[in-house]
Amino acid sequence: MSNLLHMENVRVHIKTRALDITALELDHLSLARGEMLALVGETGSGKSMTASSIMQLFPTQKARVTAGKIMFDGRDLLGCKQSELDRIRGEEITMIFQDPMSSLNPVFRIGDPIIDVIQMHTGVSKIEARDQAIRALRYVGLPDPGRLMQRFPHELSGGQRQRVMIAMAIVCEPRMLIADEPTTALDVTIQSQILFLIDKLKREKGTSVLFITHNLGIVSKMADRIAVLYGGRIVETGPTREVLKHPRHPYTRMLLEAIPRIKDKRDRLPVIGGRVSSPAEPIRGCRFANRCPRVSDLCQAEVPTLATASDEHEIACFHPVEEKR
């Protein structure tokens, strides 16, 4: 499959009066057409920052991409004019955010922002836009969508609000969808429905999905490939089955070992000792060195780069875990 998205040597800096922080350092990251790629890692690993760099919508005005290329269907998004970028966002690349309650404006009815998105990107009449919005809400499984469009966000459940966000994201049939922890704070049943819906988009419409999560159980069932991030860098990437079955980076192995299992006979779950280092801390070598059981002087002096471990499986580690087949 050819790549729809390719990021190369991307650097994101957050510059304040006191500090110049490197928040993201991606050597390379690709998303193929019709593929689902999962970004996993602890809080602060750079998952959402990766999504922000693609959309160029950062949580602070002090953050910006300072180097690299973000190629989308042959175009470098970093070189696009603002008008072109505005068109691409919402029409070709869309995003589902973590918290639908804060993403939906409480003073507008549910249907208003969906109609606005349709008219902005297609130029159709308000009547036609309303019909398209109803079809999108029906596609995501919401009953009586015509009536639902007249309701306010606070009148809907968390699962219904998330479905509205998905409808808004897919109404213009984008080629790429970024799902940033879309099942956060939802109960297990609703989580399952939302995940089924995202998978349905991939299967039926060929939408490429960048799925951001910390839940490796979800990843194992949905994603084609996985990229494990730590400290703003990719430490391991490859086909999901290969990475989860044969993890080579110590961090990936420790994440998997910490997952509770139904027939777990261990008295205590393993934990990753230490803490995630702040991006503001000056670290010369590997950012995982202060928590890694396989650390050496080399790890503290130099930064490991992604290297091929096996077919399509890459790791960034000087002392990878031995492969067990």
Results as ranks from 00 to 15, higher is better:
residue 163 R to D: 07
residue 303 V to L: 11
residue 140 V to A: 02
residue 239 P to I: 00
residue 49 M to S: 07
residue 94 T to A: 15
residue 67 A to M: 11
residue 18 A to I: 04
residue 247 P to K: 08
residue 304 P to D: 07
residue 63 A to C: 07
residue 121 H to D: 14
residue 102 S to W: 09
residue 75 R to L: 14
residue 153 P to N: 09
residue 319 H to E: 09
residue 280 A to K: 05
residue 54 I to R: 08
residue 252 T to S: 15
residue 146 G to A: 11
residue 225 R to G: 10
residue 83 S to E: 14
residue 315 I to D: 03
residue 79 G to L: 10
residue 147 R to W: 02
residue 320 P to D: 04
residue 257 E to K: 13
residue 74 G to A: 08
residue 153 P to R: 07
residue 179 A to H: 03
residue 182 P to G: 13
residue 111 G to T: 00
residue 246 H to R: 13
residue 116 D to T: 06
residue 325 R to A: 08
residue 76 D to F: 07
residue 138 R to T: 10
residue 235 V to F: 03
residue 199 D to Y: 02
residue 174 P to F: 03
residue 286 C to K: 00
residue 287 R to E: 05
residue 264 D to W: 02
residue 251 Y to I: 00
residue 215 N to A: 11
residue 15 K to A: 13
residue 63 A to E: 10
residue 21 I to F: 02
residue 134 I to F: 05
residue 117 V to A: 12
residue 219 V to Y: 00
residue 233 R to Q: 12
residue 73 D to M: 05
residue 299 C to N: 05
residue 51 A to P: 04
residue 226 I to L: 09
residue 95 M to S: 13
residue 89 R to W: 11
residue 315 I to C: 14
residue 62 K to L: 14
residue 163 R to C: 09
residue 22 T to R: 10
residue 9 N to W: 06
residue 3 N to F: 05
residue 122 T to S: 07
residue 136 A to Q: 06
residue 272 I to R: 11
residue 78 L to C: 11
residue 121 H to A: 15
residue 196 F to P: 02
residue 172 C to P: 05
residue 18 A to E: 15
residue 186 L to V: 02
residue 182 P to Q: 09
residue 317 C to V: 09
residue 219 V to P: 01
residue 16 T to S: 15
residue 72 F to D: 01
